[in-house]
Design a protein around this nucleic acid. Structure first.
Length: 290
DNA sequence: CAAGGTACCTGTTAGC
DNA sequence: TGCTAACAGGTACCTT
């Protein structure tokens, strides 16, 4: 379940089910799931076993679990990862990659990942220079998300306007703003009536504020619905799908009418993926004029 | 150094 | 029916 609302749904589930618990046993069933652990599966298991999970935090689309050892579990769902809570006796899922058992018994934590783009690692932490909170070393470059109280709109606007790229590329750049992926980028741009190729350096400060407001609105609405799921791949810790796909205006709706003006939604290939836009609400920017 | 393309995987679906 | 190609929500790394 990959973008901010889906990852936040998982974070809340984990917080409820694993915070404060002590790890009793770890098994790694697929090496790719711990490929960010340089010393391998044995090191991963050794550094996790016997520790207590202090909290469940999120930076953009990354989850991290500070441990009483001073290190933290880092987890990313990639394109198809799931973190599920399941009774130990439950039959293993076909793509089960990692199991984490606890000293107090059920439920155990399972990392399931069909496409293996996701993974977990145990890392040392560094203190976030602004918040003073520990952060796994490898995600120190990930920007704050737009719901983070320390997200700085003015600083974002300054950095955005210094870029020389299209607005969607910038929205997907996790070192500039985190948590936004292909679905919510398209939905937010539609709400803000901006074309994905609009040059960042031409955006006015009010336009950037409208865009940030749109990003926040669409992701907040998705979170209330439990996130977006097109199939059973994107689920919460109990394996349940969210309902926000029913509220999407343009994403995945090629040839369907724009909810605002009725024009058929167009789909274009962009950045090796799909972009959905309304051809009349989001006209393509022209050189020298937008 | 910034920007953009490509690689990494497996499964599903559309089209022939 | 069976094969093939296209496509899927992300990030890291390489080249320019």
């Amino acid at each position: 379940m990959p973008e901010l609302p889906e990852v936040e749904v998982v974070r809340r589930g984990l917080e409820r089910f694993v915070q404060g618990r002590e790890v009793a046993a770890v098994s790694v069933l697929h090496p790719r799931a711990i490929r960010r652990q340089p010393a391998g599966a044995g090191d991963f298991a050794a550094r996790l076993t016997g520790t207590r999970i202090e909290s469940v935090r999120r930076r953009g689309k990354y989850l991290y679990l500070p441990l009483d050892s001073g290190e933290a579990v880092l987890a990313h769902l990639g394109m198809s990862g799931q973190l599920l809570m399941a009774p130990t006796e439950t039959e293993p899922e076909p793509h089960l990659r990692i199991r984490v058992g606890f000293t107090d018994g059920d439920p155990e934590l399972r990392f399931v990942d069909q496409r293996t783009f996701g993974g977990m690692a145990i890392e040392k932490t560094v203190l976030d220079p602004v918040a003073g909170q520990p952060l796994p070393v490898s995600i120190a470059h990930i920007a704050r998300d737009p719901f983070d109280p320390l997200f700085d709109d003015a600083e974002f606007a300054r950095r955005l306007r210094r870029r020389h790229t299209g607005i969607k590329r910038a929205l997907l750049d996790q070192s500039l703003i985190s948590g936004v992926g292909n679905i919510y980028a398209d939905e937010a741009l539609w709400r803000a009536r901006l074309h994905y190729a609009r040059p960042t350096e031409t955006l006015t400060r009010p336009a950037i504020e409208r865009l940030l407001a749109a990003v926040r609105e669409v992701m907040a609405a998705a979170l209330v619905q439990g996130g977006t799921s097109f199939d059973s791949l994107y689920v919460n810790v109990n394996g349940e799908s969210g309902y926000f796909d029913r509220s999407l205006a343009v994403y995945g709706r090629q040839d369907e009418p724009c909810p605002r003006c009725g024009a058929p939604v167009r789909r274009e290939a962009f950045m090796n993926r799909s972009s959905y836009t309304c051809p009349t609400c989001q006209p393509r920017p022209r050189r020298g004029r937008w």
